[in-house]
Design a binder for these strands. Structure first.
Lengths: 191, 191, 191, 191
DNA sequence: AATGAATGAGATTTCATTCAT
DNA sequence: CATGAATGAAATCTCATTCAT
């Protein structure tokens, strides 16, 4: 969809709106995302949001892309590290990022455009991580009993699980699960 | 506030409302849950919902309890089966049930009462399954490299992950993950 | 309007409804009068109220009549006392009774039937008290600078004023006004 | 919650809403104050009321403040007049103003914020009038048997009493009371 | 670039009342 | 006598969005 105004991508205000959305998402969750609250946080009136973004959906997409691009960059870094498996796990299980994923997942449930974007992105990440892990296993001659792609998916699954449970106030067994996962991952780093 | 009506628990209409809610949750997700839509689906005017349920939260809790009680019963059954690990996994990964869990998770994110109920329930399930698996491992003298409680949490995590991804239209790698999980679980059933 | 059911005036339930209404009016004010709350307090379901009373208005009227008849009786007593002026003032300024008057006044503002009833009743009281005060002044040969009817109206006015102010949390100057009124009334009792 | 719109205090529409509220209050009483009716009277859709006022309470407070500020100004004027006691009484007993006070009193019974505002305001008026009367008594060397503050409270009480009775259609004895009060007040003006 | 104004659609909830049984 | 069921009407308030300026 083409931009219909002269709104600049680099505008300070536009950035403020994006950041406000990001903050609100992190602090209060996707249910708190209303144009009023975003506007209040960003110090602008709600209609201005529509000057910069055709719809809230578009704004959310923008936020998602920004956050996920950053995440992708961090993953690239992690894959270059000495213990890539652990490094990737740390990114995945970082509460901050996991919270985002969870909230975007919630948004995606009833916003097709976001779902699509997430699907595309998680595919990209999966491919990149899989490739990275595979290379890592080969280089270090590590015999993982599980395919790289599966290792990655398990990591994502566990991280999401822990985050969701924490969000509703449950944490029974988390410690032991985390420990278990981490010691398993250590073997994959050849440690 | 106590209920002030004579509304009966066994009322056909009350049931219709519960079922409509269940259906909508499954088919359109938690975002579609409004008293209007529920009423329309149940063939009932919205205010009647409040005749039977003090609030939508109470209705959702009722639905959750009904679904989860049913789930718990099925899990008890599964634990008695010949291949309890596989049987439990099948319940967990049943798209229908998993969809519910996912949608209730979304509701729980901004409805404290539901979050609490879910936390309580998932704790109950975890305890029960852990106990069942432990007994199973002992009886069959299966040496699981992972504690029963972890096995269970991993199953939940993977099932949730697959469901969430499917919900947003992603399914890359699912087949291989499922296969992998299932063959792993087979070993835990002593097969 | 004729009664349309066989409802008995002496029914225990009917009485419970009346008393519940009275209590609620006293404790929570006219704004809290809903058929739900009345029913809850009386231990009956809201529709039953309509079995005994054609409408809430009729119920309120019944309550008003009961309370006011009781008030009238107490006033008759007071007029027979040794210090009738003081005795009447005590009734008028009794917080309990004054609260009722105030709440019924509020109801009367938008319920014509209640307004009428109140007008009739306050006329009756005024006549009776006026007559009583006049006889008292004559018998005791007290020369009131103000006509008996005016004395009564002032008492009513002041009592209502104090009650209303208290209801909104104001009480500045009340003590001095009460004192002043009471010492004035003492002279009218020939004390 | 802070205002999130750019709604201007001087807006014509905002004013129309305030005036509609004022009119409805006068003509139909506090029970008629609903966003629908106010909207209809102001020629505006109900939600627009919430664009200008955070809540109905806030609107009522705005109306109260406007009316009462005007009343305060008139009282200040009255206190400067040649017969300040009479002048203040005329303001107090002006049916228009008294009707407002009565209706706001009714609102205050179940809207704490309005009760508070009224308490504050009536305290201000009482202080100002008391001070004015005291100065007046001194300047004119009038020996009032009653303290200025009591004179004022009696005026308020009587005015409220007459208004409330008129509102429910009673007026027996009003003429003689008014006459009596007025001749009493004349003495306090040194006439 | 920004905003004041406005709105249509909708949300949840409350209420008095009716009616068949 | 009593109640379960139901409803029409209404209440307050929220939201994303549009539009003229």
């Amino acid at each position: 969809m083409a931009k219909w105004t002269g709104a600049q991508d680099e505008s300070v205000t536009r950035n403020a709106i994006i950041e406000a959305t990001e903050q609100l998402l992190r602090e209060e969750g996707s249910a708190a995302l209303t144009s009023r609250k975003i506007g209040a946080r960003a110090g602008v009136k709600p209609p201005l949001i529509h000057y910069y973004f055709e719809s809230l959906d578009e704004l959310y997409l923008t936020v998602f892309r920004r956050v996920s691009q950053d995440g992708f960059r961090r993953i690239e870094e992690a894959l270059k590290s000495d213990r890539p498996v652990k490094a990737v796990w740390e990114i995945m299980s970082d509460p901050n990022g996991a919270r985002f994923t969870m909230e975007f997942n919630a948004l995606a449930l009833h916003r097709a455009s976001i779902g699509q974007e997430m699907a595309t992105f998680s595919g990209m990440v999966r491919d990149r991580v899989t490739e990275g892990f595979e290379r890592h296993f080969q280089e270090r001659q590590i015999a993982s009993p599980l395919a790289a792609v599966i290792v990655h998916m398990l990591m994502v699954a566990v991280a999401a699980f822990l985050t969701q449970e924490k969000a509703i106030g449950a944490s029974k067994g988390h410690a032991v699960l985390e420990e278990s996962v981490e010691s398993w991952l250590a073997t994959l780093d050849g440690v």
